[in-house]
Design a protein around this nucleic acid. Structure first.
Lengths: 305, 305
DNA sequence: CGGATCCATAGGTGCAACCTATGGATCAGA
DNA sequence: TCTGATCCATAGGTTGCACCTATGGATCCG
């Protein structure tokens, strides 16, 4: 089998016209280079040098072979350089998980943070929903993520809370916003909730369920939609109210429901935002970078813990 | 140090998402592939796969690295293919030595013979003069050659005569051509001889010297020029006569000296044409090809031995 | 012809690539 | 929840290769 080492020896020998000089340059003993050349000739099935008294002379086959050998070694160097540049964040892709609504109000800023520091990289923010992200983490497709808890079983995962984001009641009817929303009034409200596909595991719903169960009621939603934008738009039209993160509300309301406002719940309720990754994993520099930036960004909006 | 084997293992693992599958495909045991991947990761200083329960998952670094690894292996294959095609005379360069005048009347035909059989190759016919060729052979720059003997010391060389080519007297004066040229009349002739730089070792002159010494005369030339064409052209203008190979005469006279004719010497004299290469050398297929074709070509013109 | 230079060979050492066997973790299905 | 299957990591042992030094033979130069 042909090896890179053989090619290196070949080129050094070709350039110097001498096994001894090649060995000097490469820092080996002369018989070692001699052996490599012989192995290379044997594996190619051709003679590359004529041994002629003092020195060696390349054959025409060697002339033809040389540019190819150079190309191979050049592409190896290129490969190493590429990895080095990925390692120092000059290029390459950084992939990070982020649950749906957080991405809405911190994602763009996070991407901007990364690109400002490392202009050459690609960034992938993965995940519409916490459960997606969680699955990607379990499968190894994602190394780390920012995620809303509680929500999913966290066995085998290390969870580090970084902030909590208050849940607020959003309505286009000002009379419903004059005071914090009690569980009783929440139970009577006509709600539109987002992320219907994930309703069983959505962290916001879990918080609401908990709150209502304490007063003996079950949550009922009037409208179910997939994305938060649609929900907010429906609120804006006065068709229903909703409960979402305060961060999402401040981001979406001016644009999609300018007539609407929001008010806290009573008692105040929170989504906990955390960094999550597989337990026992050593995080890559890229993942640590994303965690640091995402934490800073989220803590500027939500309440640090 | 990064190795080709590591790259092969990396690509197989990347494609299958499994060390076990990769090992199966490559015909190794699973721990062997595992070790190669670990070595590759260590030499690159990055993690290429996340070990996640069942199977392994490539990191984004692996995504970036993969095309480079593929390029390296592709260029290795390309290099091997190139050598194979040289070996089977599909491409590459064939270099062969040939002394001056023989090249004049057999060189083009020889090149044509090679190209007809192997259209892709480059052909180099090296050497203006026997001594050049001989030196190239000694230095190893040439593997084999067709050469005129006697001429030079042949120590360390294997010489195989293939033909003899008669020397003829060429003149534009018909009255000088009515009978074979005796040594006495040769001594009185006004001669132009070619290859003046090599006059001491030129085989034709050595033959003439021998011939004249037998009748107690020394050769004197009136004009010395470098190339045979010039000599023949001077003969055509009637300014002098010359002695050259019959083959060269038949090739050059119609074109350069249509008025001139030739006649044998008495006794007839010959240049011996031989294949010469370093003693003890194993000849490459390319050299054997050239020897075979050159021999056939020269024997069609000169007299086989 | 003697010294210098260069490649090939011989013989020995150490590392690395490979194997088998086995343990631990995960996943699918009963 | 447990069991079997699957997959990777580790341990331990063997072989082969890459490397070394020492030396011989050939060539070149003075």
């Amino acid at each position: 089998m042909l090896s890179l080492h053989q090619l290196t020896c070949f080129l050094a020998t070709y350039e110097h016209g001498s096994l001894t000089r090649a060995a000097e340059e490469l820092g080996y003993a002369q018989p070692s280079v001699s052996e490599q050349i012989r192995l290379l000739e044997r594996s190619l099935g051709v003679q590359l040098f004529r041994r002629v008294g003092r020195g060696v002379v390349p054959t025409t086959v060697a002339d033809s072979f040389r540019p190819h050998a150079e190309r191979v070694l050049a592409s190896v160097q290129e490969a190493e350089r590429a990895v080095a540049s990925v390692r120092s964040f000059e290029t390459g892709t950084i992939r990070f998980g982020m649950f749906g609504t957080a991405r809405l109000y911190a994602g763009a800023g996070l991407v901007a943070d990364v690109l400002e520091r490392h202009p050459g990289v690609r960034v992938e923010l993965i995940g519409q929903n916490s459960r997606d992200v969680h699955e990607d983490l379990r499968r190894g497709r994602l190394e780390a993520a920012m995620i809303a808890v509680p929500g999913l079983s966290s066995e085998g995962m290390t969870i580090t809370p970084v902030a909590r984001d208050e849940l607020v009641y959003v309505s286009a009817h000002p009379d419903r916003l004059h005071a914090p929303l009690t569980p009783r009034r929440l139970a009577d409200a006509s709600l539109v909730m987002a992320e219907t596909t994930w309703r069983a595991t959505d962290s916001t719903r879990m918080v609401l369920r908990q709150m209502l169960h304490e007063v003996g009621r079950n949550p009922i939603t009037r409208i179910e939609v997939e994305d938060v934008e649609t929900a907010v738009e429906l609120v804006g039209r006065g068709l229903a109210d909703t409960v979402i993160n305060k961060g999402a509300a401040s981001q979406l309301l001016p644009r999609l429901a300018p007539e609407a406002g929001w008010v806290s719940l009573r008692p105040r309720q929170y989504d906990t935002i955390a960094i999550v990754h597989r337990a026992g994993a050593t995080l890559s520099p890229a993942a640590r970078l994303m965690i640091e930036l995402a934490t800073a960004r989220i803590q500027a909006i939500a309440e640090p813990v």
